[in-house]
């Protein structure tokens, strides 16, 4: 049986006084790909940020278990070192810090106390990831997200995932704002990371990226709750009919 990597139990999350996540249960096993869909404002991004430990989002009820251990009191750095990764919808710029330097520091944080990463191994890791995402190697010398286009930012998020090799990868709207070629390259980059050791949670509005990345499970989130689960066919149904019938169904229920 597949190992349970993430287990969310009756999770409630608030920003200040406002409750945004209103009771979510979700389990993610190693080796699976989940798509989390839903209309704007349904709480998808809030869930991803709360999972990664953003200080602005407070868990008011329930728990998050990662590899069977509660992580809701851990900082984002600790969660990262346990193997979690968030691909941001809006990544921050870090002026003056080159992509190479940023990644070196992130890798060094993982090698504390362990064997150091040799410069040659580091270079190979970067070169492979750059090639896979068809990026200009000059990106390594640029400052992190500083003056990047929307598409460049999204690629850099996936580049980081390729280099850091997390076990649980949460990608928040990595597909938004991309042209069709960029979408395909990024989807290939994500596909390359599929494997028995890793789980991927894709947060998206659209079914588009799911043409390239066939999910095992599709969840639909509306107003802070998961209202429907199904296989890949659920995504296609949503694409065809939109979210309205689902919302209507909820209101009437």
């Amino acid at each position: 049986m597949a190992e349970r990597l993430l287990e969310i139990r009756d999770l409630h999350v608030a920003v200040g006084e406002t409750e945004i996540i209103r009771g979510i249960d979700l389990t993610v096993d190693r080796g699976t790909v989940h798509a989390l869909m839903g209309p704007n404002g349904s709480g998808k991004s809030t869930l991803s940020l709360a999972l990664m430990g953003h200080p602005k989002y407070t868990v008011t009820q329930g728990d998050i278990l990662y590899k069977g251990r509660s992580i809701k009191d851990l900082g984002p750095d600790e969660r990262s070192l346990l193997g979690m990764f968030l691909g941001f919808q809006y990544p921050s710029a870090i002026p003056g810090v080159s992509v190479a330097n940023f990644l070196r520091n992130a890798l060094m944080a993982r090698h504390k106390g362990g064997p150091p990463l040799t410069p040659a191994a580091f270079k190979k890791l970067l070169d492979d990831a750059i090639r896979r995402l068809k990026m200009d190697p000059a990106v390594l010398g640029r400052y992190v997200n500083d003056g990047f286009s929307g598409g460049e930012k999204k690629r850099l998020e996936i580049l980081q995932a390729l280099v850091l090799q997390p076990e649980l990868e949460i990608l928040d709207e990595t597909d938004s704002g991309l042209d069709i070629d960029a979408l395909r390259i990024i989807a290939e980059g994500i596909n390359a990371q599929r494997g028995p050791e890793r789980a991927i949670v894709l947060i998206t509005h659209y079914q588009r990226i799911l043409n390239y990345l066939r999910p095992d499970v599709v969840h639909v989130m509306v107003r802070g709750k998961i209202v429907k689960q199904g296989g890949p066919e659920l995504a296609q149904e949503l694409e065809a009919k939109g979210y309205d019938p689902l919302i209507k169904e909820l209101v009437e229920a």
Binding site: M52, H54, D77, L81, F85, S92, I94, N105, A109
Partner: peptide, 8 residues
Amino acid sequence: FYVMSRGL
């Protein structure tokens, strides 16, 4: 938060 989410 962005930098810390990478393990720093």
